[in-house]
Computed example of a mutant assay.
Amino acid sequence: MIVVALISVYPFVNGIYNSFFSDAVFGGGKYFSGLENFRDLMSDSLFWTGLKNNFIWSAACVGFELVIGMLIALLLNLPYIKLRGLYRALILLPWATTPVVAALIWRYIFGVMGPLNSFLNAVGFANPPNWLVTPGYSLFACIVANIWIGLPFVIVTLLAGLQSLPSDVYEAAEIDGAGVLKRFFHLTLPLMKSLILILVTLNTIWTFNMFDIVYSMTNGGPGNSSMLLSLYSYQNAFAYFQQGYASAIGVICLLILLLPVTFYIREVRNEA
């Protein structure tokens, strides 16, 4: 409990406390500014850009990870798939990779002379985009990298849920003439609803707060087109030395993330 208090509770409380203070521009410590940091955020165009990118980033990553993860989990759950144990072990490799290392790998893949553009040139695309320095593509490249890293956790969790489902229910449905799609939508999804809610809630929190992927691949560029709130908070704290302003951004992120948590708690209580 002492360790948890030191690494979680204290930074949490201290972050909220610091959000009500501002740092003097020319030194001299910090002073109490009340809600000034939050008022400044409301008129900060870069904050709104980061917020918009955060929603796009979170929705794309969580959504695609859930859909792709469910498809792969369903395939790995088929009894006649050979070498299933090997596939499950290989799937965990991206998850075991350090995010910064994974980001550098994908930075090389999306590079001007990287494998992706070399492949596109080979199949007939004469001028493939410069993914990491083009505003329309930089955030997309970061999303692909994050999906690759987060997908194994989703697959393993869903696969565990699929393997815990009662087989007699599926046998009865198959005898009654229910097809594959009907069994999936009327049996699998309802039976796994609680697990999917937990998975989406946790994945949304982790993805929304993700920092290292974007920092290592684009550093929020070009032109802040891939800026996220976590990265903007980091820049204010350690580049501009405005820790109060950075803490205010963190508090806003906390308030936003309370929404999916509240929704999850309500759903669980309704089921209970």
Rank of each mutant, 00 (worst) to 15 (best):
L92C: 02
L159I: 11
R266G: 04
F211Q: 09
Y234N: 10
Y31Q: 09
L116G: 07
S225M: 13
L120D: 11
L86P: 01
G136M: 12
W131M: 12
P115G: 14
S194H: 03
L202K: 03
I249M: 06
M42I: 11
L78P: 00
W57E: 14
L139C: 04
L35E: 03
N130R: 11
M113H: 05
P11Q: 05
S216M: 11
S164I: 01
T188W: 10
F38C: 06
L120G: 08
M70K: 02
A5G: 02
I213M: 15
N37L: 06
T218L: 06
P222K: 06
W48Q: 10
L202V: 14
G177Q: 12
G150V: 13
F20I: 10
E271W: 01
A96K: 04
N77S: 06
L93G: 14
L35F: 14
G29E: 07
L151V: 10
D40Q: 08
I81T: 06
A237Q: 05
A173T: 11
Y245A: 04
T97C: 10
V13Y: 07
G124R: 12
G177E: 14
W131V: 12
Y108K: 07
G85N: 14
Q243C: 02
V123T: 11
A145M: 14
S118K: 01
R269S: 12
L158V: 13
L197S: 13
I105Q: 03
L189T: 08
Y87A: 15
T204F: 01
I198E: 03
V169D: 01
N37Y: 11
L93E: 03
G221N: 14
N14T: 12
F12G: 08
Y245I: 03
I265L: 15
D176W: 13
S233R: 08
C61M: 06
Q163W: 00
S230P: 04
W131D: 05
Y137R: 02
N146P: 00
S118Y: 00
Q243N: 09
L191T: 05
F12W: 04
I252G: 00
G136L: 10
P190A: 15
F64S: 15
R269A: 13
P135F: 14
G50S: 14
G124P: 00
S43D: 07
F26K: 01
I198N: 04
F241V: 11
G28A: 12
L83I: 13
T218R: 02
R266L: 08
G220E: 09
L158F: 02
I68H: 01
L229D: 04
V25R: 03
Y31R: 09
I213V: 15
E267F: 03
R88C: 03
M192V: 05
I143A: 10
G85F: 03
L41I: 13
A59M: 07
L229C: 04
Y87R: 10
L83D: 07
G63S: 14
G85W: 02
K82D: 05
L35R: 01
S230Y: 03
F153S: 09
I175K: 02
T134F: 09
W48C: 07
L165P: 01
V261N: 02
N219P: 00
E171L: 10
G63L: 07
T207V: 15
M1F: 07
G161D: 08
V101Q: 05
